[in-house]
């Protein structure tokens, strides 16, 4: 069976750094950046390449800032 690989694109300018997406991610892909966006929020960022494109993070992101891709390797 082919491996599933995924990727998320975070609109960091619209991210408010609430961290809710991290709780939804089954692979621990997301964490809050030490950097801030122009509003001063520590935006969400990827900390590993384990994303499986399940879209759980996008599903619970209150600000709809996450775009998700998924492909078979």
């Amino acid at each position: 069976m082919a491996n599933i690989i995924g990727d998320v694109v975070i609109d960091i300018e619209k991210c408010k750094g609430c961290g809710v997406c991290m709780t939804g991610c089954p692979k621990g892909v997301l964490a809050l950046s030490k950097d801030v966006n122009s509003k001063g929020y520590n935006f969400a960022m990827k900390v590993n390449a384990d994303c499986i494109g399940c879209a759980s993070c996008a599903m619970i992101c209150p600000d709809g800032v996450i775009t998700v891709y998924r492909a078979k390797e």
């Binding site: 690989i5 995924g6 990727d7 694109v9 494109g53 879209a55 996008a58 599903m59 996450i66 775009t67 998700v68 891709y69 998924r70 492909a71």
Partner: peptide
């Protein structure tokens, strides 16, 4: 993998 056909959400 960021292609329209792979767009999930």
């Amino acid at each position: 993998i960021r292609k329209p056909e792979n767009l999930i959400y």
